[in-house]
C-alpha cells in the first residue's frame, strides 16, 4: 500500500457542503436538473477514480501495445447495449442516438480521432481533466468550443454528403434478437483480439 496524503480533507468537506447546497437550490428550481447534476457528478467521479480514458482505449494498442482500457471500453459497450435494449425496448418515448450516416461520419470520426490524441482527452475526458486541474485541457476546451462552432456552421454543407438520411437502426432491419447477438459476437471477438494483442 502506498502512503497516503490527507491534507485536502478540509477542502473536501467544504466542497461537499457547497455542492450539497447547490444541489438543494437546483432541486427547488427543477428537480430534474438536480438529478442530471447528480448523475453528471457520478460520471465524473467514476471517470476520475477509475482513470477511465476513451483516448487511451484507442491509442494505447497502437503506441504501447496495452489494451487494458480497450477491454474496459468493450465491457462498457456491452453493458450499455444490453441496458439500452432493455430500457428502450420496454418503455415508450425514448429518443435513441440514431443519426444520419454519410461521408460526414467518416471525416468527422477521423478528425475527432486525430484531435483527441493531440488534446489529451476526448470531450468527456477534457471535462474530467479540467476538474482535476489541468491547464492543458482548459486550452483544449477553448479549442473545442471554436471547433464545435465551425462544425455547427458547416453541418448543412455536410448533410449533402449523407448516404442514409435518418440513419440505420439495426433492430428495425434485423430484429432485436439477431442485432443483439451480432453485436455481442462482435464485442467478444474484439475482446479476444484485444487480449491477444496485449499478450503478444
Amino acid at each position: 500500500m502506498s502512503p497516503m496524503v490527507k491534507n485536502q480533507r478540509y477542502w473536501n468537506w467544504a466542497f461537499m457542503s457547497v455542492m450539497f447546497f447547490f444541489f438543494l437550490l437546483l432541486a427547488q428550481i427543477n428537480w430534474k436538473l438536480a438529478l442530471n447534476l447528480g448523475l453528471g457528478i457520478g460520471l465524473g467521479f467514476a471517470l476520475e477514480k477509475s482513470r477511465f480514458c476513451f483516448v487511451a482505449a484507442f491509442r494505447d494498442p497502437i503506441l504501447t501495445g496495452m489494451t487494458a482500457l480497450s477491454q474496459a471500453v468493450i465491457l462498457l459497450l456491452g453493458v450499455s447495449i444490453l441496458g439500452f435494449a432493455l430500457v428502450a425496448g420496454s418503455g415508450q418515448g425514448y429518443a435513441l442516438n440514431v443519426y444520419p450516416l454519410g461521408a460526414n461520419t467518416i471525416v468527422g470520426g477521423l478528425l475527432f480521432g486525430i484531435g483527441m490524441v493531440l488534446a489529451g482527452g476526448c470531450a468527456s475526458g477534457i471535462l474530467m481533466r479540467i476538474g482535476e486541474g489541468f491547464a492543458m485541457q482548459m486550452l483544449a476546451l477553448a479549442g473545442a468550443l471554436v471547433g464545435v462552432f465551425f462544425g455547427e456552421r458547416s453541418l448543412r454543407w455536410w448533410q449533402g454528403w449523407g448516404w442514409e438520411q435518418p440513419g440505420i437502426f439495426l433492430p428495425a432491419k434485423l430484429g432485436w434478437l439477431s442485432t443483439l447477438s451480432l453485436e455481442m459476437a462482435v464485442l467478444v471477438a474484439l475482446w479476444l483480439l484485444a487480449r491477444w494483442w496485449q499478450n503478444r
Binding site: F54, V73, L76, L77, S80, I81, G83, F84, A85, A88, L96, N97, V98, Y99, P100, L101, N104, T105, V107, G108, G109, L110, L111, F112, G113, I114, G115, M116, V117, L118, A119, G120, C122, A123, S124, G125, I126, A140, A142, G143, A144, L145, V146, G147, V148, F149, F150, G151, E152, S154, L155, W158, E164, I168, F169, L170, P171, T179, L180, E183
Partner: peptide, 30 residues
C-alpha cells in the same frame, strides 16, 4: 487538437460518448 475534435464531433453528430458509446449502445450502424 481541441479544434479538430470539436469540428469532427459536430459534423459526425457526437463525440466518444454521444456518437460512439451511445451510438453503438443505441444499435445504430452509424
Amino acid at each position: 487538437g481541441g479544434l479538430f475534435l470539436g469540428y469532427g464531433a459536430r459534423i459526425a453528430y457526437g463525440c466518444n460518448v454521444g456518437g460512439l458509446l451511445n451510438g453503438i449502445a443505441s444499435s445504430s450502424l452509424t
